[in-house]
């Protein structure tokens, strides 16, 4: 059992990630204040995706977890995206 070998994330790294996350937040706000039509929501979601990725990999230590777990987390998001897309096959052609 390897509970003594877990990776310890340094305080400094965590603080840097927080700064990045806050930066992304303000970036979203400034970008969505322009009206770029359909692109705004795409960009907002992309930035949210980046933020989510940061939280998952550093705060939730996913970067240092097993490959299996990383694949699983990835497939959950993929499954959700596929379900949304399939639902839109109905709605966008009605």
């Amino acid at each position: 059992m390897d509970h003594n070998k877990t990776h310890i994330t340094e305080y400094k790294v965590l603080a840097k990630i927080l700064l990045l996350l806050i930066f992304c937040t303000f970036l979203t706000i400034s970008i969505t204040s322009f009206n770029l039509a359909a692109f705004t929501v795409t960009i907002a979601l992309l930035i949210a995706g980046v933020k989510g990725f940061l939280v998952l990999s550093y705060f939730m230590h996913l970067k240092y977890e097993s490959l299996l777990l990383r694949i699983l987390v990835g497939s959950i998001f993929l499954l959700f995206i596929i379900i949304v897309l399939i639902t839109f096959i109905d709605y966008s052609f009605r």
């Binding site: 979203t28 969505t32 204040s33 770029l36 929501v41 979601l45 933020k51 989510g52 939280v55």
Partner: peptide
């Protein structure tokens, strides 16, 4: 802590979708 990050993660998506709609 993992659970707490989950709450944060959901908010990350909730915020732009609820507050920033153009």
């Amino acid at each position: 802590a993992l659970y707490w990050h989950l709450v944060d993660l959901i908010w990350i998506f909730l915020f732009p979708l609820m507050y920033l709609i153009t």
